[in-house]
Amino acid sequence: MALYSEKVMDHFRNPRNVGVIEDADGIGEVGNAKCGDIMKIYLKIENDIIVDVKFETFGCGSAIASSSMATELIKGKPVSEAMALTNKAVAEALDGLPAHKLHCSVLAEEAIKAALEDYYKKNGLTYDPTLFPNCANCGHCCKADQCGQ
């Protein structure tokens, strides 16, 4: 289908890093089923390096592809690099997304940040909360009045 780039279709058809990490060091879930997108990211972190990452996604083709690409971009990287991942980088790595699908790349960035925040909290590490998504006023995924979060 011409809606998506070949890269998007490849990551949608053959998503990388699908699954669950049972003893994850950080778990992040963003989105809302009412809006049609939920992403959940599991991180395994050793010595400040993301040694493993898995995802589960409920959503459209670009949501699944964005999750897959985002996990590829942070796997094996230091936490600081994962923190610096932007939605733009995810979309560009996929050779672009249609305008009305860009929110999928935003969700991917936010899911990773949410998982990192969880990692910081679990380990009692200090962090700057303003760097993390706040679902109450995000508005990326859906209309505010539909957002249950």
Partner: peptide, 8 residues
């Protein structure tokens, strides 16, 4: 469903 957190 196998890759959906909602289903899980």
């Amino acid at each position: 469903r196998s890759i959906s957190p909602v289903w899980r």
